[in-house]
Simulated scan of single mutants.
Amino acid sequence: MAKIVILGGGYAGMMAATHLEQLGESFTLVNAHEYHYLTTLLHEAAGGRSDVHNYCIPIRDILTKRTSELVVDKVKTINRENRTVTLENGELSYDYLVYAIGWVPEFFGIPGLAEYSLGIRDLESAKEIRQHIEERFKKYKETQDSRDLRIVVGGAGLTGIELLGELMEFLPQLCQQLDIDFSLVDVQCIEAMPSILPQVAPPLRDVAAKTLTDKGAKLRIGIKILKVEPNKVILEGADPVEASTIIWTGGVRANPLLQELGFTCDRRGRAKVTPYLQSVDDERIFIGGDSAWCDDEQGRPLPPTAQVATQMGTTIAKNLHALVHGHKEEMKSFRPSLKGTLASLGREVGVGDMGGIPVRGMVASLAKEATKVKYLWELGGMRLTAEKTQQVVQL
């Protein structure tokens, strides 16, 4: 029996694991935690919508068959010649490997950004952001220091804008609880590019911008961050901004392990894959999610999104199953079905497109909620969906 090891319990890794279970394959899943967390919803936790633990699912609630084994550990290195994975607390051998460890923040070489900013990377970092904001607002009651009521969000892509939407609903409630005048709160989103939300059509960007500015947010577009110091953001062509809360959402790159191991990678550290999602450097290693450099039919790299990652996981499982059983000719090229992009701007408002059809307002918000239910269904069927919908979706 072939030894299959999956590295990473994110969207690609978990979808590969789920489908491998359905196909009757035995495997070992290595993940840093006992749970799978919903990365695309962490802005809700960071922005105060609900407790962070509502955004995670125990992996053993997803993988229920005895053919699968969960190892809670972190990957240190991979020896492709010997087909071994070295963990912090042991070693695993493999015949076939699925690499889906995921991403790390991209700081674009901006001095001080990594050291002096917060980021939405996982459950703990999302929790840290919310607690940090609450603590600074409470401190303002003692010091009357305006910096404690100023929040800078770096980056106006999907994560930054969705976080902004959550903050502009959460902060008025927090001010009411602490008896702080909300008009004193200063929330700024700083973006170097000439527009927000490049993933959606320009008219929808305008809708998103108006929605957020009407709630009190400031969108500072076309301004570069040059440097970050403790509680200070240095800008190009503008006065520095002093703020006690600085959050960076401006980009991601693949885990550096791929480049360290000599895989063929793009400028974001993603490893080049074949149409079957195998590494171009090693056919026994499949790569998915934010770790994969995969081109579409026009030769353009696919975006590192959850919908692409989940579809990669499904394809990897099916191709790996075929390869393990000597049916290489049955392997299928990865052909993603992109359903569009939806951005929430709070609980009840959003923008985006569904299959090329622009949507806004409550319709977009409901569509976004529907994608959560769809993912839970794909991950664990009726059982998991029924158990988790109330907790994860109706927050």
Rank of each mutant, 00 (worst) to 15 (best):
Phe170Gly: 04
Leu171Ile: 09
Leu171Arg: 04
Pro172Glu: 10
Leu174Asp: 15
Cys175Val: 05
Gln176Met: 11
Gln177Phe: 06
Gln177Asp: 14
Leu178Val: 09
Leu178Phe: 14
Asp179Leu: 10
Ile180Trp: 02
Asp181Ile: 02
Val185Ile: 15
Val185Gln: 07
Val185Asp: 11
Asp186His: 13
Val187Met: 06
Val187Arg: 03
Gln188Thr: 05
Ile190Gln: 06
Ile190Ala: 05
Glu191Ser: 00
Ala192Thr: 06
Met193Val: 05
Pro194Trp: 01
Gln199Asn: 12
Ala201Asp: 15
Pro202Asn: 07
Pro203Leu: 15
Pro203Tyr: 14
Arg205Ala: 03
Arg205Leu: 02
Asp206Cys: 11
Thr211Cys: 08
Thr213Pro: 00
Thr213Tyr: 02
Asp214Gln: 13
Ala217Val: 01
Leu219Glu: 02
Arg220Ala: 01
Ile221Tyr: 12
Gly222Trp: 15
Lys224Glu: 11
Lys224Ile: 03
Ile225Met: 12
Ile225Pro: 01
Lys227Tyr: 09
Glu229Arg: 06
Glu229His: 08
Glu229Trp: 11
Pro230Ala: 00
Pro230Met: 00
Lys232Pro: 11
Val233Asp: 11
Asp239Val: 00
Asp239Trp: 03
Asp239Glu: 08
Val241Arg: 08
Val241Ile: 09
Glu242Thr: 11
Ala243Met: 12
Ala243Asn: 14
Ser244Met: 11
Ile246Asn: 09
Ile247His: 02
Ile247Asp: 01
Gly250Met: 10
Gly251Glu: 08
Arg253Lys: 11
Arg253Phe: 02
Ala254Cys: 04
Leu257Lys: 03
Leu258Asp: 04
Gln259Lys: 11
Glu260Lys: 13
Glu260Val: 06
Leu261Gln: 15
Gly262Phe: 09
Gly262Lys: 07
Phe263Val: 07
Phe263Lys: 14
Arg267Lys: 12
Arg267His: 12
Arg267Ile: 06
Arg268Lys: 08
